[in-house]
């Protein structure tokens, strides 16, 4: 299910004195099965763009095409349900959306809302609990007795329970410890590979962009300023830094080494690639 934005602009509170530009003339395509990172400063329009992906917001101008659905400012709010089942959004601090008595019921809430029977929904819930790496013993526990990281997983399981084909993640690892963060990023990569999910990730973690995404879109003041691969983006460190985006740690380190006279034909994005480029320049010298 490809997603295409054609000349999309969005204005908050249009026709009021507090009207505020959210997005300006966005054109982009996100291919089915791809892993796209959306990056940019706080306030650059990332979250606004996300909300167009399942018509929570409709473009003030232009069209958003999601699979066979076309969304414009004329689109009626009726009949959006199938779209919202296909595009699952995990919002920032998703754990704040938990409300049910038990973890199982919370995860089953989505499917039941879409007409799946209670018993079948609970079965799906049990399966999703496992998918997000939580043990079965949590199924009948109150979600509010879990740690922050575990609650986040339950919320993600609730989105996955709708069996979406597009999974949209808005800073899904913010506030998690390094270990949970790694586990969660591994989970998303697995879902993409095993279930051919399209993943759209909003993040400030450039290392995650480098390690997981195959496509990156950079937003600034509501506009797309880059639409490329992580490798191509991070090999323009001057551009990246001028726009205050930040580099993956290994790339940043390599840039600093280069300034000290080390050779870096291509800037590495990972620690492994950095070591590979560095060792030939240092071998037989540390002995």
């Amino acid at each position: 299910m490809d997603i295409t934005f054609k000349n999309v602009s969005y204005i908050y509170d249009m026709n009021t004195p507090i009207a505020n530009l959210g997005l300006k003339n966005i054109n982009l395509t996100i291919q089915s099965g791809s892993y796209t990172a959306i990056i940019g400063h706080t306030g650059s329009g990332k979250s606004t763009l996300l909300q167009h992906l399942n018509a929570l917001l409709k473009p003030s101008e232009g069209t958003v095409v999601i699979g066979d659905r076309t969304i414009t400012n004329q689109t009626n709010n009726k009949n959006l349900k199938p779209l919202r089942k296909q595009v699952g959004i995990v919002f920032q601090f998703a754990e704040h959306q938990l409300f049910e008595e038990t973890v199982g019921k919370d995860i089953a809430f989505g499917p039941m809302n879409f007409g799946v029977s209670e018993s079948e929904s609970l079965e799906i819930a049990r399966e999703m609990l496992q998918t997000v790496g939580l043990e079965d013993k949590y199924f009948d526990v109150s979600p509010f007795d879990l740690s922050g990281g575990q609650m986040r997983r339950v919320a993600i399981a609730g989105v996955l329970a709708l069996k979406p084909s597009v999974l949209v993640l808005d800073e899904p690892t913010a506030g998690l410890d390094p270990k949970s963060r790694r586990e969660m990023m591994t989970l998303f990569a697995q879902l993409q590979k095993e279930q051919q999910l399209t993943i759209i990730l909003v993040t400030h973690q450039m290392d995650d962009v480098a390690n997981y995404a195959d496509h990156v879109i950079v937003l600034e003041k509501g506009q797309v300023i880059q639409d490329t691969t992580p490798k191509a983006l991070f090999n323009q460190p001057e551009f990246v830094l001028a726009h205050g985006i930040g580099l993956p740690k290994a790339t940043e380190f390599a840039v600093a080494l280069k300034a000290q006279g080390f050779e870096m034909s291509e800037l590495p994005m990972t620690t492994a690639a950095l070591i590979e480029g560095l060792t030939p320049q240092l071998e037989n010298k540390g002995k």
């Binding site: 290994a250 380190f253 620690t271 950095l274 070591i275 060792t279 240092l282 071998e283 540390g286 002995k287």
Partner: peptide, 16 residues
């Protein structure tokens, strides 16, 4: 990052 890199460089034979 810097400590992690130093540990991995050590493993790759670059003693620091």
């Amino acid at each position: 990052f810097a400590m992690d890199l130093a540990v991995k460089l050590n493993q790759a034979g670059i003693k620091l």
